[in-house]
Computed example of a mutant assay.
Amino acid sequence: MRSLVESARDAAHPAEIVLVLSNRPEAGGLSFAKEAGIATAAVDHKIYAGREEFERSMQILLELHRVELICLAGFMRMLTPGFVNAWSGRLLNIHPALLPSYRGLHTHQRALEDGVKIHGCTVHFVAPAMDEGPIIAQAAVAVLDDDTPETLATRVLEQEHLIYPQALALIASGRYRIEGNRVISTDHAPEPQPLRVPG
């Protein structure tokens, strides 16, 4: 989230971060956003009877702030197909693995257990199924012989901070097309218009 906020401060960036929303009222990102002058909101999922009610409250806040794109960052809750479909093509996520490999949790541990030599991260459009959807950007890191899940996670996180802002800029600019599960950059798209995005 911080990388997205810092990148969007550049006047040339095609997105504006207008809201940082968390389902955890104690999330550190909320304090960072407040200090950066960005609107914040906490929608505590624990006080709702179900996911639909929780998502309705989120939707009200997103509409209030006129959000056009959502970037999930550390948001560890499954969204309902109804919410995902309502935001189809406008909902991005970053995952700490090279999708379609290692969907779900504990990606670094699983990669080490499998003995892979390359690991990384993926920015993708969100689909109703977990960790699926057209891939916008990926970055790879070498898996070292002495890696632990923690050391591997640190190197992958460095790449996440680089590719997520780049992926957001591409999508916010409108300079792409989707073919199947591929997001392809284009050179002939119309001049980008700023989009309002929650971090």
Rank of each mutant, 00 (worst) to 15 (best):
E6K: 12
E6S: 13
S7L: 00
A8D: 11
R9C: 05
A12V: 11
H13Y: 10
P14Y: 01
P14W: 05
P14C: 08
A15Y: 00
A15K: 05
E16I: 02
I17N: 05
L21S: 12
L21G: 14
N23A: 15
N23D: 15
E26Y: 09
A27F: 10
G29F: 07
S31F: 02
F32Y: 15
K34I: 06
E35W: 01
A39C: 08
T40S: 11
A42L: 10
K46N: 10
E53T: 08
E53I: 07
E55L: 09
E55C: 11
E55R: 02
L61N: 07
E63P: 04
H65P: 11
R66L: 08
V67I: 13
V67S: 04
I70L: 14
A73D: 11
G74V: 06
G74I: 08
G74S: 12
F75H: 07
F75T: 06
M76P: 10
L79E: 00
P81R: 03
V84P: 02
N85A: 08
S88Q: 15
L91E: 01
L91D: 01
N93S: 10
I94K: 05
P96S: 03
L99P: 04
P100W: 12
Y102V: 07
G104I: 12
L105V: 13
H106F: 12
T107L: 00
Q109W: 04
Q109G: 11
A111K: 03
D114P: 03
H119A: 14
H119Y: 14
C121S: 12
T122D: 09
V126W: 01
A129F: 10
M130Y: 12
M130V: 15
E132K: 07
E132Y: 03
P134Q: 07
I135K: 05
L144G: 01
D147E: 06
L152V: 12
L152E: 11
V156L: 05
E158R: 15
H161V: 07
Q166I: 00
Q166D: 04
A169G: 06
G180H: 02
N181F: 02
N181E: 11
V183P: 01
S185K: 14
T186Y: 06
T186C: 13
D187M: 05
D187L: 10
H188V: 06
P190H: 13
E191W: 01
R196M: 06
R196P: 02
V197N: 03
P198Y: 00
